[in-house]
C-alpha cells in the first residue's frame, strides 16, 4: 500500500518556498545556475527556474547532469557525458544550486559534486531537495528542504512529477 505524504498543493508550496529561500540566501538570482540531477531533479530545477523568472524577470540557466558514472557504489561501463544541457554553460565562479528529488544516503550528491568539479570551480554550491528522508552515509546536508520525511530503510520514497508521471506527489511504499 502506498501512502501519499505530499500532494500536488503541498509540492507546489514546497517548491515555491524553496524558490523564495534561494532568493533570500543568494541575495537575488545573479550569477545563479541550477543544476538538476537526472531525472526528476531536472524537472524540479526547471520549475524553480520558472518561478525565479516570474519573480525576478530573469532567466536562470538550468543544467541537467547524469551522475551514474560518478557513483562509487554502482558498477558502470558506458562512458556517457555527465552534462545533459543543450548549450555549454560554464559553472566557473557561479553560484550553483544543486537540485534533486530525494536526499537519502548522500551518495548521489557526492557523485554530483564530483561531476561539477570536472566542469570548473564554482563560487559555491548549495543543495535543494524536495524530500529529505534521513539515513545519511556521508557528511552532506541540504540548504533548502521541501519536506523532511523520516523513513525507515525498508520504505521506498516515490516522487512523481507531472512532466513524466502525470501527477505531482510524494508517496511512501513498503519494500
Amino acid at each position: 500500500m502506498s501512502k501519499v505524504v505530499v500532494d500536488k498543493m503541498a509540492m507546489q508550496r514546497a517548491l515555491t518556498r524553496i524558490t523564495y529561500e534561494i532568493i533570500e540566501k543568494n541575495k537575488g538570482v545573479n550569477n545563479l545556475v541550477l543544476v538538476g540531477i537526472k531525472t526528476r531533479g531536472i524537472y524540479l530545477a526547471k520549475r524553480i527556474a520558472n518561478r525565479l523568472q516570474k519573480l525576478e524577470n530573469k532567466e536562470v540557466p538550468v543544467v541537467g547532469i547524469d551522475v551514474t558514472k560518478y557513483r562509487d557504489d554502482i558498477q558502470h561501463t558506458d562512458n556517457e557525458p555527465a552534462v545533459l544541457s543543450d548549450e555549454a554553460v560554464s559553472l566557473k565562479d557561479k553560484n550553483i544550486i544543486l537540485v534533486d528529488d530525494v536526499l537519502f544516503t548522500g551518495r548521489t550528491i557526492n557523485a554530483a559534486l564530483s561531476a561539477i568539479a570536472e566542469l570548473g570551480r564554482p563560487k559555491n554550491i548549495r543543495l535543494a531537495v524536495l524530500v529529505d528522508r534521513g539515513h545519511r552515509e556521508l557528511p552532506i546536508r541540504a540548504d533548502f528542504v521541501g519536506k523532511n520525511i523520516p523513513t525507515s530503510k525498508q520504505e521506498i520514497i516515490n516522487v512523481q512529477v507531472d512532466e513524466i508521471d502525470d501527477q505531482d506527489s510524494v508517496e511512501i511504499d513498503e519494500k
Binding site: 498543493m9 503541498a10 508550496r13 514546497a14 515555491t16 518556498r17 529561500e21 528542504v145 523532511n148
Partner: peptide, 13 residues
C-alpha cells in the same frame, strides 16, 4: 487557506 501552512513551513524551515 494553505498560506497558513506555507507560513508554518517557513517556520519549520
Amino acid at each position: 487557506a494553505d498560506l497558513f501552512e506555507e507560513f508554518l513551513e517557513n517556520v519549520s524551515s
